[in-house]
Design a binder for these strands. Structure first.
Length: 226
DNA sequence: GCGACAG
DNA sequence: ATCTTGTCGC
């Protein structure tokens, strides 16, 4: 099956991909030296996507490499199908890196998705790089009230009345700010995902990786090609 | 039919 | 995501 064009094809592919997602910690996670933040911005009236990748050294979090790529948008934004809109340009940006990172922090959900295949799962499966979903808001699932201190969290549970499953976690990375929704993307467990997100977060709500990537993806005007 | 709904 | 000034609070 190649890249989907319709929502039906996209949903079918997600269901198929979800079966390949691994929630166990990959052995490579014992030696993580480079962590990357991935973010996508839109320009030209939302018709052009701009992906930015910021690779930071770990655990010191110093910017070591960055890449930028742009591509025409070919898929609309539909809740639950975000990856089909953003992954093409993200793969372009990844190909520009001299050295692939050991871990990816993606903007959006991982397992906490209707079909258990958020953008972090999809990207993790395509690259085979351990990936974590770091979302600023909730897509699915519910959770109990979260404490006010940094590091406090509550499991994000599926809404089903009988088959309750933990999809991820609602995490407080900073007091007085909104929560972050963390879920495994691929080749990593929820516990390890939470640990990495906290290690990558310092003075702000968002991880340093995400902040660098976001800064790159939406600061400079779109590069012109004449 | 009525809400909910990553970026 | 993106459009945007001032403003409340530590």
């Amino acid at each position: 099956m190649d890249w989907p064009t319709t929502t039906a094809e996209a949903q079918a592919l997600q269901t198929q991909l979800a079966a390949q997602v691994l929630t166990q910690d990959d052995l490579a996670l014992v030696d993580v030296n480079y962590v990357a933040g991935v973010d996508v911005g839109f320009v030209a009236g939302n018709r052009v996507a701009r992906a930015a990748i910021a690779v930071l050294s770990y655990p010191d979090l110093q910017l070591r490499e960055q890449s930028l790529a742009t591509l025409p948008v070919t898929f609309p934004y539909i809740p639950g199908l975000l990856s089909f809109r953003e992954i093409p340009v993200i793969l372009c940006a990844l190909n520009l890196l001299q050295r692939l990172p050991d871990l990816l922090l993606c903007d959006g959900q991982g397992l906490a998705h209707p079909r258990r295949c958020g953008i972090a799962c999809h990207l993790g499966l395509l690259t085979q790089i351990p990936a974590i979903g770091v979302a600023k808001s909730r897509l699915v699932g519910h959770h109990a009230p979260v404490g006010e201190n940094r590091g406090d969290w509550q499991p994000l549970m599926d809404k089903s009345e009988d088959k309750s499953e933990t999809l991820g976690a609602a995490l407080r990375t900073r007091p007085g700010t909104n929560l972050l929704y963390i879920s495994p993307g691929h080749r990593i467990s929820l516990e390890t995902s939470l640990a990495y997100v906290l290690h990558c977060t310092r003075r702000y709500r968002l991880p340093e990786t995400t902040r660098f990537a976001h800064k790159l993806a939406s600061s400079p005007p779109p590069p012109l090609t004449l």
